[in-house]
Amino acid sequence: MATCDDVRPLLGAFADKALSPLEAEAVAAHIEQCGRCRQTVRDQQRVQHVLDSFQPPPVPEHRWEQVGKRLRAELEGRGERTVLKTRPRIETLEPTPVSTPSLRPEEMATPFARGPEPPRSLPRAPSTTVRPPSVTVLRVHAARGREAFGWVAHVVGAVAASIIIALGILSVTPPPAGPAAPPAMATVGPIALAGPQDVSILEVEMTDPGYNLVVAAGDANEVAAVLVVPSRGDG
């Protein structure tokens, strides 16, 4: 007969009648003989019974209407784009065209509308750089790598990113006339990706005519920064 250790992981599902007939039969046979596990099933059912009757406080209709109006404004592109307190994730957004609003300087420092600053994985631009560019992330794409090869991909990805950034910096030439503004590192994140087991390929575009995107950088978890350079004056 099954032991307590065997059936314990199944007791909750047994209480919910969510086991297969075979599993349910094994658990039923065990709890007939075991008072402790029988009591655990009763406890699970009792808690569930309380939860079944647990309703959140109702929402007045006018509050729903306010939310509905805000959503319609978002759909129609009216009003200002909200900086959300919650972050879209790869797993929540299926394949992801993620948009974030054009970031004002203060939002670069504090991506949450009202919150403290979360930790960064890349250093911030030094204060001596040109005016903070406005960056719009149009698309963040994460390709899920096979977990077994995740560490290999991480190493390859890190090396590739370093090379790309180095090449990007070396390829920057100043505009032909006027004072040359230096490249700037603009923080646009954090835009959370799926998790450390994922290999991320980031595609970031920007729409600020004053700057051109050189490369996006980040780690496996978020887009942390993009390197941008001033455009040559024809954009």
Binding site: V67, L71, T82, L84, K85
Partner: peptide, 9 residues
């Protein structure tokens, strides 16, 4: 916010 995420995605 969730529905805004829905709209944006």
């Amino acid at each position: 916010e969730s529905f805004i995420h829905v709209l944006r995605g």
